[in-house]
Amino acid sequence: MTADPLRIEILVIDDEVQIRRLLRLTLEDAGYVVREAETGLAGLSEFERAAPDAVILDLGLPDLPGVKVLARLREKSPVPVLILSVFGQEGSKIAALDAGADDYLTKPFGDGELLARLRALLRRIKPAVASNTFRFGTVVVDLERRRVMKQGQAVKLTSMEYALLQLFIMHRDKALTHRQVLRELWGPKAEAQTHYLRTYMMRLRRKLEDEVDDPQYFQTESGIGYRFVSEPGN
């Protein structure tokens, strides 16, 4: 319960008072400062006023669709946004992620999960530590020389596999939609070619995961995309 000297402010936009109370409890315990809003419009004006460091946004608000609130936020700022949704809203989750949300959580979720996601989002707003290597598990990626080592052995990646890995490292611990990855790697015309992505993911996992059938780092988000988990079990 160490108070963060930076006093990081989180804005919670959710219409359920109990969720807001519990989020406040969890977040304040973790040392964040919490601001609340009950509706989308109130959330937007609170955002203007308080300029929080991150936003937790519920997709099912009574006044405005969550995606619309997100779009208005994005007009103003690149603030990290974590979406809360309920079971069965895959479509709106993807829409929110494509519209610029940084990550999502499906209710009900655990405290640990929430805090881990939030930490990952906040880490990225701080300038990345100037480092030429990135490590996960037994894998070391030399970003400057574009070399990958696993358990001390050089791993040969094709240029596309490397580009995929690089994209994941850049967006580590964050959900990436199929569309986002496909567009980044193969261009806008390939947005629907999910089988490219599936095939390359399989190759990448084979080369970098310890257990191909039970991947720890390159995780699939069903129906949404992938998440690169840099520190599994954290």
């Binding site: 069965g88 199929h178 599936r198 399989m202 059938d213 039970d214 991947p215 699939t220 069903s222």
Partner: peptide, 24 residues
């Protein structure tokens, strides 16, 4: 959802391993 006809599958290319892991 099934009974109200609300299940509209979005078919896409999938890796069977992903289902099994997610389910687990």
């Amino acid at each position: 959802r099934l009974e109200s006809g609300g299940v509209r599958p979005q078919l896409d290319w999938c890796d069977v391993r992903d289902f099994i892991n997610a389910a687990r």
